[in-house]
Amino acid sequence: MHDSAQDDVTTMTFEAFADTILPGEKRFPGDVTVAGVAVGGGAVASGAVAVLRTDEGGMAPALDNLAEALNGHAGGYAAERGLSLDPAVPPFVALSFADRTELVARLTAPTHPERDIWVSVAMFSTIAFDAAAHLHTVDALADGHPGMTTMGFKPPEADGLWRFPEFSYGRQLARPHPDTTPSGSPA
């Protein structure tokens, strides 16, 4: 059965996680999942949750359970630090950006038993920002995808294909190794 309340918790939790990986500015007044510590759109505005929910990515069936696990970690972290969390939002969302960052660092540390999972979520968050993996790249750039636009990824030519006719300084810029063989290889 579709559970929209669970969907909301899962979406909010992973938005807060993705915003910790590559943060953005708040999308609207009262945006609680995006902490708003950076200028311009971050992983959330770039589509991190959409990427996590793609069939292709393989993470979608596990997301509800992972959100629950992440919120469990957040609750434990808050108890350890003596933090009181706003009960109106999921525990991870209720953490400050600094605390979200500290918790993500712990969960992805080389010694953490669940690191594979949280590294995977971090990878998908990053891929949303730098590659818009849920969209055709041509469309993402045409629509001003926040991540790829921030990076300055150049758009294609009019036919939708990338070509760079200007590509070279066009002159010798170093002395080749004196032992280079006739095939152009090292000796």
């Binding site: 590509f167 070279s168 300084y169 066009g170 002159r171 010798q172 810029l173 002395r175 080749p176 280079t180």
Partner: peptide, 22 residues
């Protein structure tokens, strides 16, 4: 003339630092 900007930049930086580059 086949070498793109990034390769040219690396070559120039190597040359500036007293290295060869191919």
């Amino acid at each position: 003339s086949d070498v793109p900007y990034a390769g040219g930049l690396w070559a120039a930086a190597c040359h500036h630092a007293g290295r060869t580059a191919n």
